[in-house]
């Protein structure tokens, strides 16, 4: 039982969430079997819907990694959404702003600029925490609102497309991350990022420093690690991942930045990171699960006449069961519940 726990807790959490979701569906007058059938239909039934699931999962992996990595340093990055839209619009700017570049240069360049823009946005919260002690939970949320206003302004003023809509022009073809059949190649970038995060955390000195700061900041400082530097670096890498997620969305899915740009990430990054128990490789299956629900949501509305917001409730339930000690207390012994605490205290900086 002990060995199975890392996998068992998320699985039980998902099962419970789907079960309660079914009850909510039934109570609100829908047929749960039909609804879940439509959900699977819309996400896994054909090559095309699987491709769509992978497409949805890609930014979710990046957003999940952003949260998971920050958690490992004891930081709670709720700002994935803001970092993602900033990354998205900057990659769009590079994408439509340069003409005639070969694909091998243009696409990576747009991706890199988007990622760096996300990193810069993420590091603001890191700097405020490291130098001023402002808690990242509030600053990252506030920065989300600022980012949404800022990208909205950019898309309706300097980088506005012709026409009435507040959106950027379409990116050049040379900046697109192409589909390979119905398989979105951006997904491979996300998988590579997961492996990269795992390597960073487990095999590098920086990863050791990040984990040490996350587990015991005072001891890390005693050991000569600059806690401030690690906080800023972690938030920058976290933002880099989310920003890259936004860039992939721009270059691989939408083709430009427009209002409502992947509003779907929301708090999903947190759910995914916690389902994965903050393990970078665990983020992939967790993101696929949420991605499938997102992809199948519209089919559910179409076939079973269920509002797609039910997936928000199911995701909240998953988070409830995986992030709090409920499942551990119910299914495992009491003492093991103590491991759940992941974030650093409020007043500490």
């Amino acid at each position: 039982m002990r060995m199975l726990k890392p996998v068992a807790v998320p699985l039980i959490a998902v099962g419970l969430a789907l079960g309660i979701g079914a009850i909510i569906l039934a109570v609100s007058g829908a047929n749960p079997i039909e609804a879940y059938g439509a959900l699977i239909d819309g996400s896994l039934s054909s090559q095309k819907t699987v491709g769509r699931t992978l497409e949805k999962a890609t930014p979710l992996i990046m957003g999940g990694l952003a949260v998971a990595l920050a958690f490992r340093a004891g930081l709670f990055n709720i700002g994935g959404q803001g970092q993602l839209v900033v990354g998205g619009i900057f990659s769009a700017a590079v994408g439509f702003g340069f003409e005639g570049l070969p694909w091998i240069i243009h696409a990576p360049m747009a991706l890199a600029v988007g990622a760096l823009a996300g990193a810069a946005w993420g590091s603001i919260a890191g700097i405020l925490k490291a130098t001023r002690g402002a808690h990242e939970v509030i600053t990252t949320i506030m920065l989300n609102f600022v980012a949404l206003n800022l990208t909205d302004w950019l898309a309706s003023n300097p980088w506005k497309d012709e026409g009435i809509l507040s959106r950027t022009p379409a990116v050049e073809e040379s900046a697109l991350i192409p589909l390979w059949g119905s398989f979105p190649t951006g997904f491979l970038v996300a998988v590579a990022a997961s492996i990269g995060c795992w390597y960073l955390l487990e095999r590098t000195n920086l990863g050791f420093e990040i984990r040490s700061v996350g587990l015991n900041g005072d001891a890390a400082r005693y050991a000569g690690i600059s806690v401030q530097r690690i906080i800023i670096a972690t938030m920058a890498i976290s933002g880099l991942l989310a920003g890259a997620g936004g860039a992939i969305e721009t270059q691989g899915v939408i083709g430009r930045y427009e209002p409502g740009f992947n509003a779907g990430l929301g708090f999903n990054g947190i759910t995914i990171a916690l389902l994965a128990r903050n393990h970078p490789l665990g983020v992939i299956p967790a993101a696929l699960l949420i991605g499938a629900m997102e992809a199948g949501g519209s089919m559910m509305q179409f076939n079973a006449d269920v509002a797609p917001e039910i997936t928000d409730i199911i995701e909240a339930l998953m988070l409830l069961f995986v992030a709090t000690p409920i499942v551990v207390r119910w299914f495992f012994s009491r003492q093991e519940a103590a491991e759940v605490s992941v974030t650093a205290g409020w007043g500490s900086s």
Binding site: D218, A219, Y222
Partner: peptide, 24 residues
């Protein structure tokens, strides 16, 4: 250090990692 739990060690790291905590 006077407080080994708070300063001297990282409890969730292995003995090995703690042995090189300031020389990794």
């Amino acid at each position: 250090p006077e407080d080994r739990e708070k300063l001297g060690l990282i409890g969730a790291h292995t003995v090995a990692d703690n042995m090189v905590l300031n020389r990794y």
